[in-house]
Design a protein around this nucleic acid. Structure first.
Lengths: 211, 211
DNA sequence: TAGATTGTTAATCGATTAACAATC
DNA sequence: TAGATTGTTAATCGATTAACAATC
């Protein structure tokens, strides 16, 4: 229960995707070796990760039941009971995330968007309402929503973050290119494209040197 | 030079942002303690990270020169000579990334987009051309572009990835919710929203339990 | 000088992996 | 039975942090 490291936690969604893919192919049972091969991981690591979240043991010689693993991991990640979230900033990135239908299968349901120019924004395609940002605090209080997603330009991000915190939001997913900090009573995940890009670029330049 | 861990590498862009912010405020010199406080890190870690990328030492009692650090980190990350990239998939997310003007300051220049329905896509706002996907291999060969960004729906991602690899792309930044694997001669970064969300959700539920 | 801050060495911590007995 | 695969203990590896002398 407690023994799950952050690293394990981050691998779980990847396992889940692969397992679902395998299930679709009619694969009923899968070994840690197979999974490790597909994901370029160590089989011992895979087994340890599974042991942390799944009560059902694997069988020597056969491996794990695909279906059981899918259930256990989904449960552990809370994919079966979605949490509600609001998003602030209905620009391109905001809309992309709103339209990203997969979120629901990841246990996240975006129920409303907020924007400075709520009235100017054509509410095409999307089924969720867009409100003026002034209505945010009341909305949060009324609905008790816990998660806020920030997709505003970087100059507004800090202000929006504060507003979310004072309104009672308890978890913030920040896509603006600023490092936001919050009180200890609030969880934050700074989604840092620049950091990802740095890793990729570095590997690329190593590869190019090898040629 | 080689001594840079992946973790350090990922922290560098964060340092850089903070340092630039400070420079704008006219702060000429900064201590590792100050930076650590702002970013919730350990000051020793900050100093070690700096030592890995910057030749200029800090001065006891005063700290580091903001400007020098900015230069050294920017150089190290290659932000001063942008790499060219192409993007495959000009849907909402693709357009959001294309329009994300900040990339250039991160050393990434997106020079063209490719899409199944290139002709149907209104090439609004954006200055880069959108081509049919069939033209991708020739384009890559002609321009020698190294980096490919995948923003197609998940069912097409694998196919697109293969196309990129066979066309000669050497680094792939994948935003589709699939775990892609590539030959060792190609660098890949699977941008995994589900993994980020898992970490955030877990912290949130821990917080809510504390209440 | 006294005090803040540096750079570095050593200790700690945690995650990954190797080794191996158990078992289907 | 023989062989593949499991779960777990111990060894390894690497990153973080504590301790501290050096110095502006």
């Amino acid at each position: 229960m407690e023994g799950i490291s952050k690293e394990t936690l981050q691998r779980l969604p990847t396992y889940l995707r692969l397992l679902k893919e395998m299930r679709q192919q009619g694969i009923m049972t899968v070994s840690s070796t197979t999974i490790a091969d597909r994901l370029r991981l160590n089989p011992v690591q895979v087994r340890k990760d599974f042991a942390g979240v799944s009560s059902s043991a694997g069988k020597p010689k056969t491996g794990f039941e695909t279906e059981e693993l899918i259930n256990d991991i989904s449960d552990f990640l809370g994919y079966n009971d979605a949490s509600q979230a609001i998003i602030v900033g209905a620009g391109k990135l905001g809309k992309a995330l709103i339209g990203y239908s997969n979120f629901k299968s990841y246990g996240l349901e975006i129920i409303a968007a907020f924007d400075n120019n709520a009235d100017k924004i054509p509410n095409d395609t999307h089924s969720i309402p867009i409100y003026a940002i002034e209505e945010l605090p009341d909305f949060v209080k009324k609905t008790g929503v816990h998660i806020g997603i920030i997709t505003v330009p970087k100059d507004e991000a800090r202000k929006v973050c504060e507003l979310l915190v004072t309104s009672g939001i308890r978890a913030i997913w920040n896509f603006a290119p600023v490092h936001l900090t919050v009180p200890d009573t609030v969880a934050i995940k700074n989604e840092d494209m620049a950091a990802s890009l740095a890793v990729l670029s570095k590997r690329l330049s190593e590869l190019l040197l090898e040629d």
